[in-house]
Simulated assay, not measured.
Amino acid sequence: MNKVPMTVEGADALRAELNDLKKVQRPRIIEAIAEAREHGDLKENAEYHAAREQQSFCEGRIQEIEGKLSNSQVIDVKAIPHSGKVIFGTTVTIVNVETDEEKVYRIVGDDEADVKVNKISISSPIARALIGKEEGDVVMVKAPGGDVEYEIDKVEHI
């Protein structure tokens, strides 16, 4: 099975969520189920059914996170020598050649991607176009709205 790249921060966030689910959420849900059982008839007990549904979601998320962590390859970009090239985990400042609009993106794993905080997936069209390029290079990104040319302004190993 192929390993999925993940930053150290992404892996830490998943581990923290997993810890919360196992040590805080799971016991709280078990307590809610036990309390709802004490109320009597389970067929018509809305509290019981709601707690069981929460338990199902919680256990599913635990399995999902454990699966992601077991299939991940954690990459610490700070430990990689600075080559000036765009690689997984680097922060890249790009400038649209036509509009001079500047954007800053960090290239991360699929599970960590969040455009709202400028984190793009390694499998996104922009990241695929940038990987392996250096500062000063001009890249063509095949976007859904058409091809866009960007110049790589800065590559940072943060």
Rank of each mutant, 00 (worst) to 15 (best):
M140E: 06
E151S: 01
N45Q: 08
R28C: 03
P27A: 07
R106S: 13
R15H: 13
K142W: 01
S123E: 13
G89M: 09
V4S: 04
P81Q: 08
R37C: 10
V139L: 03
L42K: 11
A11W: 07
S70N: 05
Q25E: 14
S121D: 10
S72N: 04
V155D: 02
E35N: 08
E64F: 14
T93A: 09
S56C: 01
L14N: 05
D76T: 13
V95F: 00
V74F: 08
P27C: 04
I62N: 07
L21R: 09
A113F: 06
G136A: 07
E134A: 13
E31S: 10
G132H: 13
L21V: 05
E38G: 15
T99S: 15
E98F: 09
I107C: 12
E44Y: 07
P5Q: 10
D100N: 14
K116P: 01
G145C: 06
I29R: 01
R26T: 14
A50H: 11
G60A: 10
N118A: 15
T90L: 10
I30P: 00
S121Y: 05
A11I: 08
R106D: 01
D76S: 10
I33Y: 03
H39A: 10
C58D: 02
E135P: 06
I131C: 04
S124Y: 00
H157M: 02
K68G: 02
E47F: 14
K22I: 08
C58Q: 04
E35P: 01
A79V: 11
S121T: 07
P125N: 02
G89R: 06
G145D: 12
H39P: 01
D153L: 09
A79C: 05
E134N: 08
A143P: 02
E101T: 06
M140C: 04
I122N: 14
Q25L: 12
L18P: 06
H39E: 14
G109E: 06
G132R: 13
H49I: 06
A11P: 05
E64S: 08
E98L: 10
V148T: 12
L130H: 10
